[in-house]
Simulated scan of single mutants.
Amino acid sequence: MKSSPGKSDSNFEVPPEKRPRHIAAIMDGNGRWAQRRGLPRIEGHRHGVAAVRRTVEECVRLGIEYLTLYCLSSENWKRPKSELDFLLRLLEQYIVEERQTFLENNVRVVVIGKREGIPSHVQREIDKTVEMTADQTGLCLCLAVNYGGRAEILDAVRAIAAKVAEGQLSPNDIDEATFSAHLYTAGMPDPDLLIRTAGELRVSNFLLWQISYAELWVTDVCWPDFDENLLRQAIRDYARRVRRFGGLAVSPS
Rank of each mutant, 00 (worst) to 15 (best):
D155H: 08
A156D: 10
V157W: 04
V157Q: 03
I160E: 00
A161F: 07
K163T: 06
K163A: 12
V164P: 10
V164A: 10
A165K: 14
E166C: 13
E166M: 10
G167N: 09
G167K: 01
L169K: 03
L169W: 00
S170K: 10
P171K: 08
P171L: 02
N172I: 15
N172A: 14
N172V: 11
D173M: 13
D173G: 07
D173L: 07
I174N: 00
D175R: 03
E176A: 06
E176I: 07
E176Y: 08
A177E: 01
A177D: 10
A177T: 07
T178L: 14
T178M: 13
T178D: 05
T178H: 13
F179R: 01
F179T: 04
F179N: 02
S180Y: 08
A181Q: 13
H182R: 07
T185Y: 05
A186Y: 02
A186K: 15
G187M: 06
M188E: 04
M188W: 07
M188S: 14
P189T: 01
P189W: 00
P189S: 04
D190C: 09
D190N: 10
D192M: 02
D192G: 15
L193W: 11
L193F: 03
L194E: 01
I195P: 01
R196I: 06
T197D: 04
G199I: 00
G199N: 00
E200A: 15
E200K: 07
E200Q: 13
E200I: 00
L201E: 14
L201G: 08
R202M: 12
R202P: 14
V203G: 03
V203I: 15
S204T: 07
N205M: 12
N205Q: 12
N205D: 12
F206A: 08
F206S: 07
F206N: 03
L207A: 02
L207Y: 01
L207C: 10
L208F: 14
W209T: 01
W209I: 01
W209D: 03
W209C: 04
I211M: 10
I211L: 02
I211G: 09
S212T: 04
S212F: 12
Y213K: 13
Y213S: 14
A214P: 12
